[in-house]
Amino acid sequence: MSAESKAVEVTGLTKRFGSFTAVDNVSFDMPDGEVFGYLGPNGAGKTTLMRMLTTLIIPTSGSAKVAGFDIVKNPAAVRRQIGVISQAMTSDLDLTGYENMDVYGRFYGVPARERKERIGYLLEMVGLSSRSGELVATYSGGMRRRLEVARGLVHRPKILFLDEPSSGLDPQSRRVMWELLRQIRQESSTTIFLTTHYMEEADALCSRIAIIDDGKIVVLGNPEQLKREIPGSDIVSLVVEAPSDPLVDCVKALPFVRNLHVEDETLRVYVDNGATSLPALMDAIRSYGGRVLSAGIHEQSLEDVFIHFTGKSIREGEAKKVSLLVGAGVPQRWGR
């Protein structure tokens, strides 16, 4: 990959707050036109990394270039090349949808005629043309999110940064948001950097994904490639009453078991054929004196990839959050 084709270059980027390391020696590249997903639980350092890449906070160490410009040495040039949609909604409730777009375009110096044409095109794209003259205070959450994506595109940025774009949306609005992002990619060459803790969102939108945990990139690749790295094509989930270590060892030793993870009372057993393996697994557990409370089979997903590489579910990290309204990326215990 040539240097000219890289939209983002990150080398050893680290951010510490006192003794707490939010982003830990992260390195990756993004080619032009890619949709890159940064996937991990809340508190894993996603927003902190994005705030560094968008020049809002300065790294402790390491370096990064965005659109060819160093984020520390030339932050103004970086800002001219990017659009940013934060997790917290920032559109002005006391302005109309059109006025929100117009103010943003003026801020970036978009000429009046081009600004008018661009706003009209984008409002049509996000399905808000008929509501453009109404106050944003009357918009639903999904409408506001679509408006903010459109607003971030007014100045034709080379790279669009989205922090948890569907956070707080209902399932239907989330799907609408996904279709909008797909349309943006189809109709432009915009590179997209997306942070999310939704596995399905990353799987649906991203050409490559970095799975992160505790500020570090654990594994990076395209979704299908990452799934193929897990042994076994099916996951059998067995809820077992008080599973003992000897019982777990017994299951793990079965010849058709490729891998096994234990979370509380749930055994996640990786096998090649779940339908044929399930009865044998249940028989083995019963013969060892165990009691199966429930059982299920599913194909591998990014959730399974996360568990395989981190040893825990992404939901276990949900309690560690940052306050996005008062300074995203800084842990609350640091007074932000």
Rank of each mutant, 00 (worst) to 15 (best):
M1D: 13
M1C: 11
S2K: 15
E4V: 03
S5D: 13
A7H: 05
A7C: 10
V8L: 13
V10S: 07
V10G: 14
T14V: 10
F20V: 15
V23G: 05
D24H: 09
D24L: 03
N25D: 14
S27T: 08
D29S: 13
D29A: 15
E34N: 14
F36K: 14
Y38R: 11
Y38V: 07
L39F: 08
G40A: 10
N42W: 04
G45Q: 08
G45V: 07
K46C: 05
K46H: 13
L53I: 09
T54E: 01
T55L: 02
P59Q: 02
T60G: 07
S61T: 02
S63H: 00
A67P: 06
G68M: 00
K73W: 10
P75G: 08
A76L: 12
A77V: 01
V78L: 14
V84H: 13
Q87I: 14
S91H: 03
S91T: 02
D92R: 04
D94C: 07
L95E: 09
G97M: 02
E99A: 14
D102P: 12
R106T: 09
F107N: 11
Y108F: 15
V110C: 04
E114S: 15
K116E: 12
I119S: 02
G120L: 01
Y121H: 07
Y121P: 01
Y139N: 06
M143H: 00
R144G: 14
R146I: 04
L153C: 04
L162P: 07
P165M: 11
S167V: 10
L169G: 09
Q172C: 12
S173Q: 11
R174H: 00
V176K: 00
M177W: 04
M177A: 11
E179G: 12
L181E: 01
T191P: 01
I192N: 04
I192W: 01
L194N: 10
T195N: 14
T196Y: 03
Y198I: 12
A204P: 02
A204I: 09
D213R: 03
D214M: 11
D214Q: 15
K216D: 04
K216H: 09
V218T: 13
L220I: 08
P223H: 05
P223F: 11
Q225C: 08
K227L: 08
P231G: 08
S233I: 05
D234R: 13
I235P: 00
S237H: 03
S237I: 04
S237Y: 02
L238T: 14
V239W: 11
D245A: 15
P246W: 03
L247F: 03
V248L: 11
D249K: 05
D249M: 15
D249H: 08
K252F: 09
K252S: 13
A253Q: 06
P255V: 05
E265H: 15
L267Y: 05
V269Y: 02
Y270D: 00
Y270E: 04
V271D: 04
G274C: 00
A275H: 06
S277D: 01
L278P: 13
A280I: 03
L281T: 06
L281S: 10
M282L: 07
I285D: 00
Y288Q: 05
L293S: 02
L302G: 00
E303S: 10
E303V: 01
G311E: 03
K312Q: 06
E318D: 12
L325G: 15
V326F: 11
